[in-house]
Design a protein around this nucleic acid. Structure first.
Lengths: 119, 119
DNA sequence: CAGCATCCCACGGGATACTG
DNA sequence: CAGTATCCCGTGGGATGCTG
């Protein structure tokens, strides 16, 4: 079913571009296939590397490591080394990271609907 | 998204944690740096190729074309050829595509905050 | 435990040029 | 107008193996 001809020209939403579109701003932080999942798994208590590895089945150490590092660099998460033996490292969301939770939540909510729909 | 290599990982829908990993479900549709932007620009009236090109500064024809095709394949948007002269093509969100809007909205809202914060 | 190192590939995406 | 066609490169990501 197709829509009517070229009709109104009313901009649906304030046409994207204030220079760097806010979408890109945010997607820069959430880029990568695994990133939302990682952030999501940090939404509660801080978690350690190996916990995340098992929280997110099939993620490789390399990728997890790379994403965590990138997220830390961008200020989305903190990385706290705790000097025990063997040493443990805890990751947690920063305030900035917590800002992303609504997005993750929306993604998760929609994903659930899609899953339900597709079986 | 890039989910395939020799053995194709990031399973179609792995048993993430006990409950949900609908994140991948949704990210499959929103993957790619430009995709959210495209969907966002289709949130109102249907738009044509060249409109999208100017709506989204700096996107190349190739990428726009590729994303539109992928989105159409996934059932997120429709592609309607209108036999005028010169021919016009209109893209619009499907019901499925509209499901994604809350996500886009959240992304945009957060992106705006980030932009304000970072300058 | 929490990771780098290494190798290697596919895909996303920029640039440029061309077509129905 | 609405795309294709190439070329080419960077990086995300998988597999495997090794280390402090």
């Amino acid at each position: 079913m197709v829509l009517s001809r070229r009709k109104s020209k009313v901009p649906p939403l304030p046409a994207c571009p204030p220079q760097p579109c806010p979408l890109q701003q945010c997607m820069e932080l959430l880029g990568g296939a695994w990133t939302p999942n990682i952030v999501w798994n940090l939404s509660g208590d801080p978690r350690r590397f190996s916990e995340l590895r098992s929280d997110i089945p099939n993620i490789s150490a390399k990728v997890l490591s790379a994403r965590l590092r990138a997220l830390a660099d961008k200020g989305v998460i903190t990385r706290s080394v705790i000097d025990t033996s063997p040493p443990t490292v805890e990751y947690a969301l920063t305030a900035l990271g917590r800002e992303l939770l609504p997005v993750i939540d929306a993604i998760e909510r929609v994903g659930r609907k899609l899953a339900a729909r597709a079986g």
